[in-house]
Design a binder for these strands. Structure first.
Lengths: 143, 143
DNA sequence: CATATATCAGATAAATTTTTCTGATTTAAT
DNA sequence: ATTAAATCAGAAAAATTTATCTGATATATG
């Protein structure tokens, strides 16, 4: 099982993180990216299609084509990738699975989870891909 | 999609929370519990079997049988239910899905997520079912 | 213009998770 | 004893998610 994001989303995050460490003039095809993040090529390709539609990633068809970061790494936050792939339900639904969990009708851990959820959102919104670049490089190299 | 726990686990948490608001001398059969937490009877029954094996819930077979909290609500923490059903992988795996994420080989958000993960663990370990009783009652009534 | 190599779109397959079903066993009550 | 009502165990079905395949289209290059 994944932690809080879907597998799709994890792969999307990994792929974008990888792209952010590379010169955005250089294209990487799905095969190359899949190899870098050690994930199945077709799945990576599918996820990159989603991210292409949402404008985070750009693609070029045909020979010597591939994918690239469509925005400057300084402008992209991880939260964008999460929202584009998994949507916002992780940040809205009750952690215990109760329906209609809200301030007016809270579950037993509503406030505590609310705080953690907001901090998680912040964690993904605060730093840009360029802020994370050094750490990302170190991690990618180790894969 | 669920937030961080599986559906099994959500139902387990809800069922145990419900039981903790009731006199532990009284038995509730799967049908009744399912009705209370508004979830499919057979699924509730399956999850209660898991919790019975792990000793959190007790069961009595035969006519007038049913389930009950096997421990005092003052002794049970939500984390026990989570570990019994989903295991500890949520608290161990990399939130970005990278393999071998560790202090020696951290992902770009390793430390930040580590903090949140620990706080989530604490949130589930700190208060007992009896501490949560008032809040639980209020929520259950509203379902 | 022809060819090789990409993405892209959508269908299909496989795997996993969720849900339901069936039958066996247990037990209280008559 | 017999019966009714419950858990329990495991299989089966349905749904969802993950992964793969196929064919169409696009494009750089010779």
């Amino acid at each position: 099982m994944t932690v809080i994001f879907s597998k799709k989303c994890e792969i999307g995050l990994q792929a974008v993180l990888f792209l952010s460490t590379q010169n955005s003039n250089t294209l990487f095809n799905a095969h190359k990216i899949a190899e870098k993040v050690k994930q199945p090529k077709e799945f990576v390709s599918k996820v990159l299609q989603i991210l292409t539609k949402s404008g985070i990633v750009g693609s070029k068809k045909g020979k010597n084509g591939g994918f690239f970061l469509a925005k400057s790494p300084a402008e992209v936050k991880l939260i964008e990738i999460v929202l584009a792939i998994d949507g916002k339900s992780v940040f809205e639904n009750c952690v215990l699975g109760f329906p209609a969990c809200s301030n007016d009708n809270p579950c037993p851990v509503h406030n505590q989870w609310g705080k953690l959820r907001d901090e998680a959102y912040l964690m993904l919104s605060k730093e840009s891909l360029s802020d994370l670049k050094y750490k990302t490089l170190k991690k990618i190299v180790s894969l």
